[in-house]
Design a protein around this nucleic acid. Structure first.
Lengths: 215, 215
DNA sequence: CATTGTGAACGGATTCACAGCC
DNA sequence: GGCTGTGAATCCGTTCACAATG
């Protein structure tokens, strides 16, 4: 299960499969074919089979995939089999929303620290967690051994905060700040600048093009 | 400037260029080379030249690109030369954040309607706009001629809301709901399920892989 | 016999290498 | 001389077609 070389395009689809499987299991569906998964996800059946085969042979020929078994495998592959600790830095509108968002209430993820530069927000209680000054980040990150961070600070402060995160063991960052982050090679950054997502959407707004759902 | 066939990969990068140009112009930089744009964006210089050349020859050989001129061109290409009207449906934590987010305060975009199913949220004032019942969506969408929508309702309600949007002229949707949307061919959906983005990030959290910033 | 798993073909996007131009 | 614009080569991901198998 070499993480090293998995195509990014595959990794992006794995959580989608997981979500569908969670739904199917909740509806007591035991077996699912790549064909039906295709209908639920919008990806082609071949692509789904290739994606899954990438990590091993999880299906049964002639039958399909066992939903619970596949779910276990996917949890393991993604790294959600144990609860992931994350920190949130930036407690503006977006940081607040994310802290309260379902994402963070689901069983796979646990927020272990929320930080902000603005003293006015400090001390606020969110889901039993106090908002702390950024100066407390090193302590919390090190003690919790959190590896994942969500960044929603203003662009001007982003790089400084990222340097601090990286120094203290963070290796994966979901970046909402509208700026390119510079990080060492072992750190993974996923940019999710919502302004940019909205602007590329606008490009398509006026035209009558084929539908292409993008993740 | 055929919108019809532009590669999606190119479209995703255009707003990034725009953001850099805005910054450069603010700092009174007149000329920029693809090399420097490359450093600012993380994309290769060749790729940037190809992307821009896709829409015409905007640069000057031996010199570079005029920042203001290129900005004008990009605004036109993306469709931001005139203010884009958008609606936001779903006024939970995330919808609230987005309504107040900078994205929406920037000059390119104007929110013309905010809707929610929950009467408790209705009537709330956001930036001079009242939160309305979803039953008012058709009227507002038609009168404003808005083409772009941001969707942050729960998964169960998403499809119903989308059908209503599409009936009333929406052609581009930024979907935060964790579900696949079914839309006619002329409607473009961009999925931005934050749970999924976080989960694919977690995949990378433990490994020591090369940095690959993704947009 | 239905459905998975996969080598081969294909196509789209990126990189290379250089011609064209200021 | 320096930087853009672009055809050719390459790389990577998707689709096709089918062999493998419960």
């Amino acid at each position: 299960m070499s993480r090293r070389s998995t195509p990014k395009s595959v990794v992006k689809r794995l959580p989608v499969y997981l979500r569908i499987l969670d739904n199917l299991i909740r509806r007591d569906v035991d077996i699912i074919s790549s064909r039906v998964l295709s209908e639920e996800t919008g990806f082609t059946a071949e692509q789904i089979r290739k994606d899954l085969a990438y990590f091993g042979a999880f299906g049964t020929r002639g039958t399909g995939y066992n939903t619970s078994y596949l779910r276990e495998k996917l949890l393991r592959i993604i790294g959600l089999d144990k609860q992931t600790k994350i920190i949130i830095v930036g407690y503006g509108h977006l940081g607040k929303a994310l802290a309260r968002y379902n994402m963070v209430k689901n069983p796979y993820v646990k927020v272990v620290g929320i930080f902000d530069a603005d003293p006015a927000e400090m001390g606020a209680e969110v889901e039993g967690l106090r908002v702390l000054a950024i100066s407390k980040l090193p302590e919390v990150a090190r003690e919790s051994k959190a590896k994942v961070a969500i960044l929603t600070v203003p662009a001007e402060e982003a790089q400084k905060v990222v340097d601090l995160m990286v120094e203290n063991g963070i290796t994966a960052i979901l970046n909402f700040a509208p700026t390119k982050l510079h990080v060492p090679d072992h750190v993974y950054v996923h940019n999710a600048d919502l302004t940019i997502e909205l602007q590329s959407l606008i490009y398509y707004a006026e035209e009558d093009e084929k539908t292409h759902q993008t993740e």
